[in-house]
Amino acid sequence: MASDSITPMASGQDLGGRSRFAKLGMATNDVLNQAYRDILEMEVPPSLIYNKVKASPNFYRRLRPEQGQLLINATHSGYKNFDISLTYQLIRNICSKIPKPTKGKWGEEPEAGEVTVGDDIERIRSIRNGLTANVSSASTPEAEFNHTWSTMSDICQRLETFTGKKYLDQLNLFHKLTIRGETETEDNPIEKTKMRKENGRTRFAKLKMATNDVLNQAYRDILEMEVSPSDIENKVRASRVYKRLRPERAYLEGC
């Protein structure tokens, strides 16, 4: 259950944009990832997932050791600890009965009128990519937020029909979250008490914003110490890594 309020990493710096970013991040990793897990479980029970993956050695070798351990643990803990990247990989590489994207293959952006389950799986991947792999700061403009949230609502409605599970109500709870700036709580004991009770989703939002803002800036600074922005395209084109990049340069492991 979503808490009533969360506090962003910084106040006074595009608080609205950071709030929207936090809501999208939490909804994606909570609601949309749960939809992924439900879709996966419809075809492969957790007790069978390890053997199912081991039967595809080329795919199994691409998994990290900690991901392999999650597959083993699924026998007793289910899919609850599977993150959105791993779950997407499993759906794409292991599941054969799930309706595929309209275009017939995974990894491509669906068109507006393409609404198979596979299309919505790809839409979730795209939303997740936009939040984690292709952002320069932990902030989302209002127009982009409204468009993305509308897309997420449509996805939830369609996947409710497919899985028989409920996602839209939980999604709406995140939309109603009130996000307060830290400066508003400094002299308010009631707000301080609420902050002490913040749940795991709140901490996740803070870490996500800090990673995309502060730590990502450190990455950019380190890169620029060696390669200037004007030289980066030629530098990458001269390397084999260029062929592995997607056109939008947004990479989700396993895609």
Rank of each mutant, 00 (worst) to 15 (best):
D38E: 11
L245Q: 12
G25E: 07
S137E: 15
P247Y: 14
E191G: 00
T163W: 06
R92I: 08
N29F: 11
N129E: 12
G12K: 02
K165E: 15
P99N: 09
P247N: 14
G68V: 09
P189E: 00
I190C: 00
Y167D: 09
I127V: 14
G181I: 00
D14R: 04
A218S: 07
Y242P: 00
Q217W: 12
G118C: 10
A112E: 15
E111D: 13
V214W: 13
E160C: 10
P46F: 04
I49K: 03
L245E: 12
I98D: 03
G254R: 04
A10N: 08
K100M: 12
I232T: 15
G113N: 14
K206C: 00
Y219L: 08
R249L: 13
E142H: 03
V227M: 03
I94H: 02
Y88L: 12
I49W: 01
R37D: 07
K197T: 06
T183N: 08
R201C: 01
T151D: 10
V44D: 00
A35T: 11
Q217E: 14
K206H: 04
N172W: 09
W106Y: 11
F59M: 02
N172K: 13
Q13S: 11
L252G: 12
K103S: 14
E122H: 11
L90F: 12
I49N: 02
L71T: 04
I84S: 09
R201T: 07
S11H: 04
M195Y: 07
L207Y: 12
S77N: 14
Q157V: 15
P46Y: 04
F59I: 06
